[in-house]
Computed example of a mutant assay.
Amino acid sequence: MSSTDKVFAGSVPKLYDEYLVPLIFSVYADDLARRIAALSPSDLLEIASGTGAVTRAAAALLPSGVRYVATDLNEPMLEVAKQRQVDDPRITWRQADALALPFDASVFDLVCCQFGAMFFPDRSKGYAEAKRVLKPGGTYLLGVWDRIEDNVFADDATVTLGKMFPDNPPLFMARTPHGYHDKAVIRADLERAGFKDISIETVTATSRGPSAEYVAIAYCQGTPLRGEIEARDASRLEAATDAVAEAIRKRHGPGPVEAKIQALVITARP
Results as ranks from 00 to 15, higher is better:
257 V>H: 04
44 L>D: 14
247 A>G: 06
99 L>C: 10
203 V>G: 11
113 C>E: 08
209 G>W: 02
217 I>G: 07
235 S>E: 15
18 E>H: 13
38 A>M: 05
34 R>T: 06
61 L>E: 12
128 A>I: 12
99 L>Q: 15
221 Q>K: 09
58 A>E: 06
229 I>A: 02
47 I>T: 00
201 E>C: 15
80 V>I: 11
105 A>H: 00
155 D>M: 05
239 A>E: 15
2 S>L: 06
169 P>R: 03
64 S>W: 01
188 A>N: 12
170 P>I: 03
75 E>M: 10
137 G>D: 15
11 S>M: 14
202 T>W: 06
89 P>L: 11
163 K>A: 13
204 T>C: 04
213 E>T: 14
48 A>R: 05
41 P>T: 08
147 R>P: 03
66 V>Y: 09
179 G>H: 14
52 G>N: 06
58 A>M: 05
28 Y>T: 00
251 R>D: 11
34 R>E: 13
255 G>D: 15
158 T>N: 01
171 L>Q: 13
188 A>H: 08
84 R>S: 11
68 Y>T: 06
143 G>K: 00
110 L>A: 10
252 H>Q: 08
76 P>H: 05
128 A>L: 14
97 D>H: 11
259 A>P: 08
266 I>Q: 03
219 Y>K: 01
170 P>Q: 02
170 P>G: 04
143 G>C: 07
126 G>Q: 10
187 R>Y: 09
198 I>K: 12
114 Q>W: 02
244 V>Q: 03
237 L>H: 08
88 D>Y: 12
245 A>C: 07
92 T>I: 13
200 I>A: 07
46 E>P: 06
135 K>A: 04
19 Y>I: 05
115 F>M: 07
136 P>F: 06
79 E>M: 07
231 A>L: 08
39 L>P: 05
144 V>K: 04
255 G>K: 04
184 A>P: 00
43 D>T: 03
192 R>K: 13
192 R>D: 12
184 A>F: 00
54 V>A: 11
24 I>P: 00
14 K>A: 15
203 V>D: 08
25 F>S: 15
43 D>Q: 12
45 L>N: 10
72 D>G: 01
178 H>M: 08
9 A>W: 06
7 V>G: 00
224 P>I: 04
150 D>K: 15
44 L>N: 11
111 V>H: 05
156 D>I: 09
134 L>N: 08
43 D>M: 07
129 E>Y: 09
26 S>C: 01
198 I>T: 10
23 L>A: 08
16 Y>I: 05
40 S>K: 12
231 A>F: 07
189 D>W: 05
70 A>G: 14
81 A>R: 07
249 R>S: 14
125 K>Q: 12
240 A>W: 00
36 I>S: 04
41 P>Y: 00
3 S>K: 13
242 D>L: 09
165 F>K: 02
170 P>A: 08
149 E>S: 15
115 F>S: 01
64 S>Q: 09
228 E>S: 09
173 M>S: 03
218 A>F: 04
231 A>C: 09
